[in-house]
Simulated scan of single mutants.
Amino acid sequence: MPNEPYASIIREGFEGLASGRFQTLSEAMYFFEQFPEYPCGSDGCVKVQRVKDTRNRPIDAGYIEHERWGISLRKGQHKPLVSLETFKKARDRLAGRAYVPAKKNISEDFPLRGFVTCADCGSPMTSS
């Protein structure tokens, strides 16, 4: 039996990562910080590493795995929080294998975008 409201928070986080709603781990971390039910560090903040560790646990998709003990990915006997497909999409996004849309302001009109820096502050010039 899933532990609510924690289960709903985890489910929405997985779906946000899988769908692209959260483009980075930091965006997912800011989402989880909104919920006092989500486990925090000793300083009361959600850490990026906790979010990363949570997204790499197949137990949330109803599967178990433990490479050190030689247990390959297999279906568990517990109710999953998310589908295996959603879990894999979220994990692939974290591993950098997911498709990220190209920026709309990259074009021939701005050939030096990202290559030229401001002489005063050193920040990269943008195309806007």
Rank of each mutant, 00 (worst) to 15 (best):
E37I: 01
C118G: 04
E15S: 07
Y99R: 12
E67C: 01
L73N: 09
T54W: 01
Y38E: 05
S83V: 11
K103D: 14
R11Q: 14
R11Y: 00
P36C: 00
D60Q: 05
F110N: 15
L25G: 15
K103R: 11
P124D: 02
V116G: 00
H78T: 10
S72Q: 13
P111Q: 05
E37C: 03
H78R: 09
K75R: 15
P101L: 06
R93V: 04
E85P: 02
P124K: 05
I106R: 15
F35V: 05
S123M: 09
D120N: 11
D120W: 10
H78I: 09
V48N: 08
Y38L: 03
N105M: 03
I106C: 04
P39K: 07
H66N: 15
R113S: 06
V82H: 05
P39V: 00
K79E: 09
K75C: 06
R91M: 08
G41I: 00
G70R: 08
G122W: 02
R113D: 08
E12S: 14
M1A: 10
F32R: 07
S26E: 14
D60K: 14
S83L: 07
E4N: 15
A18G: 12
E12R: 15
S107F: 04
S123E: 12
G76H: 09
R97T: 06
K88C: 06
R74Y: 02
S107H: 07
P5T: 08
I71K: 14
I71G: 01
E33H: 02
D60V: 12
F31N: 12
R11M: 06
P5W: 09
A95Q: 15
L17K: 13
A28I: 07
R21Y: 04
C40R: 14
R93F: 03
P124G: 00
K79W: 02
R55Q: 11
G70I: 11
K47H: 09
D120A: 13
F22M: 07
E15W: 01
D120T: 10
G13P: 09
F35D: 08
M29C: 15
P111H: 01
V116I: 12
K52P: 00
D109I: 04
Q34E: 14
I64G: 06
K104G: 04
S123A: 14
S8K: 04
E15K: 14
Q77M: 02
F32K: 08
F31G: 07
D92K: 08
V51H: 07
G96S: 08
E65S: 11
G41H: 02
G20T: 05
R91T: 10
C40S: 15
V82Y: 02
R11W: 03
N105K: 08
F110E: 10
H78A: 07
K75P: 05
A90W: 05
G44V: 00
A119C: 04
L94S: 06
I64R: 15
E33M: 10
K104E: 13
E4Y: 11
I71C: 06
L73W: 07
K75V: 11
N3D: 12
G96T: 06
A102N: 05
G44L: 00
L94N: 14
D92R: 14
G41Q: 11
Q23M: 09
P39I: 05
L17D: 01
E65P: 00
D53R: 04
S72T: 09
T126A: 07
L17C: 12
R91G: 01
K75T: 12
Y99N: 08
S128R: 12
T54V: 13
G13Q: 04
G13Y: 06
S83K: 13
M29D: 03
S83E: 13
K89R: 15
E12N: 09
